[in-house]
Amino acid sequence: MIVITAPTGNIGHQVLDRVLAAGRPVRVVARDPAKLPAGVRERAEVVQGSHGDAKVVARAFDGADAVFWLLPPDPRAASLDDAFEGFTRPAAEAMRRFGVKRVVDVSALGRDTPHAAKAGFVTASLAMDDLIAGTGVAFRALAASGFMDNVLRQVQPIKEQGLFFDVVSPDRGLRIVATRDIAAVAARLLLDETWTGREEIPLLGPEDLSYDDMAATISDVLGTPVRYRQIPAGALEERLAGRGMSAAMIQGMLDMMEAKENGLDDAIARTPQHAIDTPTSFRQWCEDVLKPAVQAL
C-alpha cells in the first residue's frame, strides 16, 4: 500500500496520477475528498482529514509500505517549528508505530552549506527531514530548487502589465525545476521497493537561469515583451502581511530568499544526471503550462 498526502495539490496530484497508472494499491489523505476527481475516489482508498492529525495518520499509515509526504503551506502558523516539525511530528510517530518501510518527501537544497542555519523555510524543511529520518524508515528527501510553477502566481501581472516580481537580483543564476519532474522522481521511488537507507536527491532542473533570462524566454514564448522587476524585501513583506501571513512565516520567507541570493542553492555541482532526473526546460514549461494559463485569462 502506497499512501499519498496532499493529493489535490500541484505536486501531489501528479504523483497520485503516476502511481495509479502503475496499478498499485493507493491510499490518499485528503481534507476534502470532494476535491478529488471521481476516477480517483473510485480507484484509491480515501482517508479524510489533515495529515497533521494523529488519528488521521494512524488510519492512513496502518498497513502502509511507502508514504509520499508533502507538507501543506500554513501561512498563518505562529512559528516555523509549528508549520514544519510540529505538523509532521504525529506522522513521524505513526511511521514508527506502524512500521512504514519507505518515505519520500519534498524538501529543499542547502544542507551542509554555511547558509542552512538561517534559511527560513529551508532550515525548517531540513529539520523536518531529520525528524522523519529519525524514525528509522528508508528515506529519500527530494531536495528541490525553486519551482518553475511559482511563476503561475504572477500570471495576471505578466498578461496585464508585462511584468513579474521578486526580491532576487535580476542577474542571479537560479536552479529551477518543473513540478512534473519532481512528481516523476517521487513516483519512481514510491514504486521501487528495493532502496534502503537515507539519501537526499538534488533536483536542479536542466539549466541555471536568472530572472532576466526567464523574462526573455517568457517574452519569446508569449510573443509579447515581459520584464522582471526586483522589489525591496520590505515591499514583499508588506504584500505577504496584506494576504494574512503571520510575522513568523514572513520572516521565514525573507530569510530563505536572502540565503538563496547568497548562494544557498549553489553547493551542488551540476551533473548530467540532473538533466536526466529533471529534463523539463523553462522554455518547454512556458510552452506547456504558462502560455495556456496566460491565454486562459
Rank of each mutant, 00 (worst) to 15 (best):
residue 13 H to A: 05
residue 227 R to A: 14
residue 143 A to D: 11
residue 27 R to W: 11
residue 24 R to C: 04
residue 212 D to Y: 02
residue 90 P to D: 03
residue 173 G to V: 10
residue 186 A to F: 01
residue 132 I to C: 10
residue 219 S to H: 01
residue 181 D to E: 06
residue 176 I to H: 05
residue 33 P to W: 04
residue 175 R to M: 05
residue 220 D to K: 13
residue 122 V to H: 01
residue 162 G to R: 09
residue 260 K to T: 15
residue 188 R to D: 14
residue 273 Q to Y: 04
residue 26 V to L: 06
residue 139 F to C: 09
residue 122 V to F: 05
residue 155 V to Q: 06
residue 23 G to H: 04
residue 248 A to M: 09
residue 74 D to R: 14
residue 40 V to L: 08
residue 226 V to A: 01
residue 135 T to A: 10
residue 245 M to H: 13
residue 239 R to H: 15
residue 77 A to D: 13
residue 96 R to G: 09
residue 21 A to E: 14
residue 234 G to R: 03
residue 149 D to V: 14
residue 76 R to I: 11
residue 192 D to G: 09
residue 6 A to D: 14
residue 278 T to I: 07
residue 7 P to S: 06
residue 166 D to H: 07
residue 59 R to E: 14
residue 179 T to Y: 08
residue 29 V to E: 05
residue 164 F to K: 00
residue 170 P to H: 11
residue 118 K to L: 11
residue 172 R to S: 14
residue 240 L to Y: 13
residue 28 V to W: 00
residue 266 D to P: 07
residue 136 G to A: 09
residue 11 I to D: 03
residue 211 Y to R: 12
residue 112 D to H: 15
residue 163 L to N: 05
residue 256 M to R: 01
residue 230 Q to S: 08
residue 127 A to W: 10
residue 296 A to W: 05
residue 80 L to G: 11
residue 152 L to E: 12
residue 62 D to I: 00
residue 127 A to N: 13
residue 257 M to E: 12
residue 239 R to V: 13
residue 244 G to I: 13
residue 68 F to R: 00
residue 127 A to L: 12
residue 136 G to K: 09
residue 35 K to F: 11
residue 123 T to R: 01
residue 133 A to T: 13
residue 53 D to C: 10
residue 139 F to S: 06
residue 55 K to T: 15
residue 184 A to Y: 02
residue 123 T to Q: 04
residue 160 E to N: 07
residue 117 A to T: 14
residue 147 F to Y: 15
residue 280 T to A: 05
residue 86 G to E: 10
residue 162 G to P: 10
residue 150 N to P: 07
residue 157 P to R: 05
residue 92 A to M: 06
residue 280 T to V: 12
residue 255 D to L: 05
residue 16 L to M: 03
residue 292 P to R: 02
residue 174 L to G: 02
residue 133 A to E: 15
residue 137 V to E: 08
residue 104 V to N: 04
